[in-house]
């Protein structure tokens, strides 16, 4: 009896201890449950901080620049001579270089990208599609510096062999190579848009006697138009922000010209050139970096917002 009650007593104590420990654990775990969401929110806000950081640094340093160079002089200036005795900071030569290289790139990437998308989504068999698409996506994974090397050491010499008037650094060659780089982006996004057009619509057109080509151009593409347009806009945004290809292959001439056989500088290439050394912090040329980067940022932001707006607003729902 005594031994029995003794063991009961002992086990009763143990249970009490266990309950206490369980309570402690529960308190701890309740605390973790409260802390974790806060911790995660802090982590998630880093992405917001990044945006704030980008906007703040660009605006504050660009503001310093506009104190020295009036904003209108910057936007409408056709002469860019940052390193001369009497420096002039006109944006137009850079803007011109950026727009021309992007237009060349889109002239390559637009038609070829959309034709690839049509082939992959409408014509190719499942097997062919599964081989071609990943291969095409390799193009998107190649670092831009490699494209820059390719443009400078291969495409430019080839162009010059055919048209000797083209300079050793010119805007044409990086524009073309940039176009090749953007092909997979447009092809992939447009193909997604076309594949999501329901088959019943294709079948309807085919049953009316349309050929596959007519079905594609009169039914599938109109139905997928919002996705296709937004892929174009994203492609342009990518071309505007592209840096290494133009830096390497287009040189650093700041001439305001429309001659694509000549060297031109884009906004991105200007940032690389100026930040690569000869800009002491606090000088006007240093602040000009941020004014140019701000312009670049605004352009790409508008493009990205536009792409999202187009694909949302004009999406045909089936």
């Amino acid at each position: 009896m005594t031994t029995n009650s003794g063991s009961e007593k002992k086990s009763a104590v143990n249970v009490r201890e266990m309950i206490a420990e369980k309570k402690r654990k529960r308190n701890f775990s309740a605390l973790t449950e409260k802390i974790i969401p806060i911790l995660l929110l802090i982590i998630a806000s880093i992405s917001i901080l990044t945006t704030v950081g980008i906007i703040y640094t660009l605006l504050s340093e660009a503001f310093e620049f506009f104190k020295r160079i009036p904003i209108w002089e910057f936007i409408s200036g056709t002469v860019l001579k940052p390193l001369s005795q009497e420096p002039e900071f006109g944006l137009l030569p850079l803007l011109n270089g950026t727009i021309i290289s992007s237009v060349i790139a889109m002239l390559v990437a637009g038609p070829i990208g959309i034709m690839s998308a049509v082939y992959l989504s409408e014509y190719a068999s499942e097997k062919v599609r599964k081989t071609l698409k990943p291969l095409l996506e390799i193009l998107a994974g190649i670092p831009t510096i490699v494209y820059g090397f390719f443009a400078f050491t291969f495409v430019t010499p080839v162009i010059r062999a055919v048209f000797p008037a083209v300079e050793a650094t010119n805007i044409l060659s990086p524009g073309l190579v940039m176009g090749v780089m953007i092909i997979p982006m447009i092809a992939s996004l447009s193909e997604d848009a076309m594949t999501s057009v329901p088959n019943s619509m294709r079948e309807g057109a085919l049953a009316l006697g349309a050929t596959k080509l007519e079905t594609t151009f009169k039914v599938v593409i109109p139905a997928a138009l919002s996705g296709i347009i937004s892929s174009f806009v994203l492609g342009i945004s990518r071309a505007i922000g592209e840096t290494m290809i133009v830096t390497i292959a287009s040189g650093s001439s700041k001439n305001f010209t429309f001659d694509i056989t000549q060297s031109m500088q884009t906004m991105t290439a200007y940032i690389v050139e100026v930040s690569g050394g000869e800009a002491p912090a606090g000088s006007t040329i240093y602040y000009s970096l941020y004014a140019v980067a701000l312009t670049l940022f605004v352009f790409t932001l508008i493009m990205n917002l536009l792409a999202r707006y187009v694909s949302r607003k004009f999406r045909e729902e089936y």
Binding site: T51, S237, R308
Partner: peptide
Amino acid sequence: NISNLAGVPSIVYGLL
């Protein structure tokens, strides 16, 4: 915000 960050040119991150 995250999808906009994905579209910011890499050179701007360099300046940041």
